[in-house]
Simulated scan of single mutants.
Amino acid sequence: MNRSGRRAFINSLPSLALGILLLLAWEAAIWAFDVSAFVVPPPSSIAASLVENASILGGATLITAHEILVGFALATLCGIVLALLIVRFRLLGQALYPIVVLFQTVPKVALAPIFILWFGYDLAPKVVLIVVIAFFPVTLGMLGGLQSVEPGLISLMRSVGARDNDILLRVRIPNALPHLMAGMKIAITLSVIGAIVGEFAGASAGLGYTIQFASTQLDTPLVFAALIVVSVVGVAFYYAIEVLERAITPWSPRFDPAQQH
Results as ranks from 00 to 15, higher is better:
Ile99Trp: 12
Ile99Ser: 14
Val100Glu: 04
Val100Tyr: 04
Leu102Arg: 06
Leu102Phe: 11
Phe103Trp: 11
Phe103Lys: 06
Phe103Asp: 10
Phe103Pro: 06
Gln104Arg: 06
Gln104Cys: 06
Gln104Ile: 05
Gln104Met: 07
Thr105Gln: 10
Thr105Lys: 08
Val106Leu: 14
Val106Gly: 10
Val106Ala: 10
Pro107Phe: 11
Pro107Ile: 09
Ala110Ile: 10
Ala110Trp: 12
Ala110His: 11
Leu111Met: 14
Leu111Gln: 05
Ala112Cys: 13
Pro113Ala: 08
Ile114Asp: 12
Ile114His: 11
Phe115Ala: 05
Phe115Asp: 04
Phe115Pro: 04
Ile116Lys: 06
Ile116Val: 15
Ile116Tyr: 08
Ile116Cys: 10
Leu117Lys: 13
Trp118Met: 14
Phe119Tyr: 15
Gly120Arg: 07
Gly120Thr: 09
Gly120Cys: 09
Gly120Trp: 06
Tyr121Trp: 13
Tyr121Ala: 11
Leu123Asn: 08
Leu123Ala: 09
Leu123Val: 12
Ala124Met: 10
Pro125His: 10
Pro125Trp: 08
Pro125Lys: 09
Lys126Gln: 09
Lys126Ile: 07
Lys126Cys: 06
Lys126Asp: 07
Lys126Phe: 08
Lys126Trp: 07
Val127Thr: 06
Val127Ser: 02
Val128Lys: 05
Val128Leu: 12
Val128Arg: 04
Val128Asn: 05
Leu129His: 03
Leu129Ala: 04
Ile130Asn: 02
Ile130Ala: 03
Val131Gln: 01
Val131Met: 05
Val131His: 02
Val132Gln: 01
Val132Ala: 00
Ile133Arg: 02
Ile133Trp: 00
Ala134Thr: 00
Ala134Asn: 00
Phe135Leu: 02
Pro137Met: 01
Pro137Val: 00
Gly141Arg: 02
Gly141Trp: 00
Met142Asn: 03
Met142Pro: 04
Met142His: 03
Leu143Thr: 03
Gly144Thr: 08
Gly145Phe: 01
Gln147Glu: 15
Ser148Gly: 15
Ser148Lys: 14
